[in-house]
Design a binder for these strands. Sequence first.
RNA 1: GUGGCUAUAGUUUAGCGGUUAGAACACUGGGUUGUGGUCCCAGAAAUGAGGGUUCGAUUCCCUCUAGCCACCCCA
Length: 470
Amino acid sequence: MGRKPKNQSANNAYQKHSKNTQDKNVFHSKVKMISRLRGMRDILPEEYVRWDEVINQARELFKYYGFLETDIPVLESQSLYEKSTGKQTDVVSKEMFTFIDKDGDKVALRPEATPGVVRSYIEHGMFNRTFQPVKLLWIGNLFRREKPQLGRNRQFSQINVEIFGEASAVADAQLIMLGYQFLKELGVTTQVQVNSIGDSLDREEYVKKLIMYFRDRKIRAKLSVDDKKRLMKNPLRVLDSKDEGTQSALEGAPQLIDNINDEARNHFIKVLEYLDEFDIPYILNPFLVRGLDYYNRTVFEFWPMRGANSGQNADSAESVEEAISRQSALGGGGRYDGLVEFMGGRPTPACGFALGIDRIINRMKEENVPMSSAGQPDIFVAQLGEAAKRQAMTFFEELRKKGYKAQQNFVKDSLKAQLEMAHKIGAKLTLIIGQQELVDKTVIIRDMESGMQEVYAFSRVFEEIDKRLK
RNA sequence: GUGGCUAUAGUUUAGCGGUUAGAACACUGGGUUGUGGUCCCAGAAAUGAGGGUUCGAUUCCCUCUAGCCACCCCA
């Protein structure tokens, strides 16, 4: 009785304090709150439902195709990434979280998974495993110290899929097919872009040709300032520049795909044949090169689909869409035949790709993909009174063991509150056990939609539930 | 890392040199007994932080922080 006014006055007292504090995040407190670091995100329970869905789907699909799940350390030697990903790449040179450990070791938070997986492959002699090729699945988070944006956090999650020890084009094609299929099954339609960047000698030759091409003053003049620099530093990256001038300058440029060796070309043709066979829609993008050092031959990316008619004339609405989707590739990968040997292992052909979980989920939200209701409980167990509560708890456990999806709130004693919760979680039935039911050895079954309820003998309850949930 | 835009309850937001800073959704309590949704009533809850300018700042200016957008790069 006297409780309410007491609370109020207490609240008022707190209120005065909180007026004096500058911290909006703290509820009635003077304590200064520590908030999350820049670019770091919390995943709240409602959203975690989607994460669960994506991750479960990945496990189901890739394991079915023979991929084995592994995990690797968050922290590795800095030199692992410098050597594999490439010291010159932005990922390694600008975006790594690095520090010197107490022993003086230079260590880094993983900005990428492939180097660690390759290291693990070599270190544990996986080329000797019974089942070859070795197909690995990895799901985890990575760290890149970038300026945050939507779909670009400093801690983010990926699904990585790698195949070691298979040189044939089936492997490349199967990966592309799996990535495409995975996204499609999640309700995200994507466009696959593919290209072949040949082998390293091809690229050396090609770069020379490209530089020759840009010797022409008129053509060179069209390049943006950035791209002129890029031409010196990392010429291949000029190819996928977004600058309009650069793109027009590239119109007559020699294409990488025309300058790769016959073996690489045949390999690529086979990849495309398989894709046709699998019925995977893809487009050839001769300018797709990717930014990590270790790729050779096949490279590919998964882009969210923008509008159905992509090849048609672009009006302004479309170009806005394009700009948005350009910013967020959902995944990408390719072949990296030289990496294992380069990292100190046996010569091992390999290929793989990564999918950005955060970006996939953003896309699912944008496309309004409905949340799965797989975990939704259909029974709520309500109780009234101490003795009935105990009975209800036992009963609830029995439901779990029998495989029903039930929910409860034994902490709330009012039936009103319990029914409210039953309604909110979308239960189809509420089972009510009170003092009277306890004595009679019965249970009330309430149909939440109609509001009708009937009493059943305890012995017949499960039978009745089965009937109603069917 | 460079450039731009933004910042009001948990969320979406209204407002503006002087207001009790308004609402919606969500939340809590109530509309007498052991019964949810709809409805009605009530309650709690906000100007990101720090400095200026001003009699007075949530409003104007600066700095910081964070988010978003573009670039860079990438998932």
